[in-house]
């Protein structure tokens, strides 16, 4: 088994799904000859041709709308948004057209919207955001946000085969930083299932995407102090694996939620509510959150560092919770 980056894992998933199913087509800006801004679609055009790797004008609304129309004839389009920040440009198509199609008139929309997301690379306020909650809040959309190459590949395959619109967030800071051994044989990872990254008895950290790795670093620090932290990687935000969260909370009796999204209206609030409603008696401490600040993502490195949750933020919050 070879060491594979998260970026390469996604590329493999696209490649293999396009090989497997001629209904899968890719559509987006600069994805063909150029291979995408981050090169995720590199090589697809050579292999699958112009009809299946469709370069578009800079028109996010048209990309999403056209993909939706293609899906009505049974195709499975995979859209690339150059950066997920630009998803705001097609918010209406996604939330009003795509998301409501099945519920209102019974027309499923099997499409994937994949996009580089997240901060930590000094991309500034318009190339660093985590807008997953706008869409997790919209009934009808699924939201996937992997943290490892293995998951990214398996989840992408599931997303493409899913008969619903799936937003697939690809954390750009993880693209080349995280490597995994990926089996050569075919596999998928189901949507809606969290993964336990580290077992522990004292405290649960529920997190996802890049913060999974930050949380694991914090957990290693905390272990030196004798605090054994359980790190649960949610992997998909919608549907949310509430069973896995509740099981872990019932075991550790303490919950810290960590996300790179901003605080107000982040998924931490939803998770806390689910835990209060279902496992209040199991809690030995209040639920705590470590999140980004409720500001735009600032550009300059010291500002962005302050904006993003850091290992020491998580360690401090976990330490306090463990001693509560």
């Amino acid at each position: 088994m070879a060491q594979t980056t998260l970026l390469e894992a996604i590329r493999q998933a696209l490649f293999e799904e396009m090989e497997r199913d001629p209904a899968v087509v890719c559509i987006g800006e600069d994805i063909g000859v150029y291979g995408g801004a981050f090169k995720v679609t590199a090589g697809l055009l050579e292999r699958f041709g112009w009809e299946r790797v469709i370069d578009t004008p800079i028109s996010e609304t048209a990309i999403i709308g056209a993909a939706c129309g293609m899906s009505y004839l049974g195709l499975r389009p995979v859209c690339e948004l150059q950066f997920v920040d630009f998803i705001a440009c097609c918010f209406n198509q996604l939330t009003n057209f795509v998301a409501k199609s099945f519920y209102l008139w019974g027309a499923p929309v099997p499409m994937v919207v994949r996009a580089p997301s997240g901060g930590g690379v000094h991309g500034g306020p318009f190339h660093s955001q985590n807008p997953e909650m706008y869409f997790a809040h919209t009934p009808g959309l699924k939201v996937v946000y992997p943290s490892t190459p293995y998951d990214a590949k398996g989840l992408m395959k599931s997303a493409i085969r899913d008969n619903n619109p799936v937003l697939f967030f690809e954390h750009k800071a993880l693209y080349r930083r995280i490597k995994d051994e990926i089996p050569e044989s075919e596999y998928t990872v189901p949507l809606g299932k969290a993964a336990m990254r580290r077992e522990g008895r004292d405290l649960t950290i529920a997190t996802y995407a890049a913060m999974t790795h930050t949380s694991l670093e914090a957990a290693a620090e905390l272990a030196k102090e004798g605090i054994e932290v359980e790190v649960l990687d949610l992997r998909t935000i919608q549907p949310l694996d509430t069973d896995a969260i509740l099981d872990s909370v019932k075991k550790t009796n303490r919950l810290l939620i960590v996300h790179e999204d901003t605080r107000f209206g982040g998924v931490a609030g939803e998770i806390a509510a689910v835990v209060f409603e279902n496992a209040f008696d199991d809690l030995d401490a209040p639920v705590r959150r470590v999140t980004s600040l409720d500001t735009p993502v600032p550009y300059s490195p010291p500002l962005e560092e302050r904006f993003l949750p850091q290992v020491y933020d998580i360690v401090a919050a976990a330490r306090e919770l463990a001693r509560y």
């Binding site: 469709i54 709308g65 056209a66 009505y72």
Partner: peptide
Amino acid sequence: DLIPVMTGVAMAGRYLGQ
């Protein structure tokens, strides 16, 4: 919103040879 959507239907129709 229907204009890009119907563009997509037309693109899929062409792709499928319909």
